[in-house]
Simulated scan of single mutants.
Amino acid sequence: MQFVLASASPARLAVLRAAGIDPVVRVSGIDEDAVAAELSDPTPEQLVVRLAQAKAAAVADELAAEGHTGESVIVGCDSMLSFDGEVVGKPQTKQIARDRWLRMAGKSGTLITGHAVVRLDGDVRVKEAAASKSTVVRWSRPSEEELAAYLESGEPLQVAGAFTLDGLGGWFVEGVDGDPSSVIGISLPLTRRLLAEVGIRVTDLWG
Results as ranks from 00 to 15, higher is better:
A57D: 04
A57P: 00
A57W: 00
A58T: 13
A60C: 03
A60L: 00
A60Q: 01
D61A: 04
E62L: 06
L63Y: 00
L63F: 00
A64E: 00
G67E: 00
T69W: 00
G70T: 04
E71S: 03
E71G: 02
S72F: 01
S72C: 01
V75Y: 03
L81Y: 05
F83H: 04
D84R: 15
G85W: 11
G85I: 08
G85P: 12
G89D: 08
K90V: 10
Q92E: 15
K94C: 10
A97K: 02
A97S: 01
R103P: 08
M104K: 01
G109F: 11
T110L: 11
V117H: 00
D121I: 07
G122Y: 01
V126A: 02
K127T: 04
K127L: 06
E128Y: 05
E128I: 02
A129N: 02
A129M: 02
A131H: 04
A131T: 05
S132W: 06
S132H: 13
K133C: 12
K133E: 15
K133I: 13
V136S: 14
V136I: 15
V137Q: 01
R138C: 09
S140I: 07
R141I: 13
R141H: 11
E146M: 12
L147V: 08
A148M: 09
A149I: 09
Y150V: 08
S153Y: 15
P156F: 05
A160N: 08
T164M: 07
T164I: 14
D166W: 15
G169C: 06
F172G: 09
V173M: 08
V173K: 14
E174W: 10
G178W: 09
D179F: 10
P180G: 13
P180D: 14
G185S: 09
I186Q: 13
P189T: 02
P189I: 02
P189H: 02
P189G: 03
R193I: 10
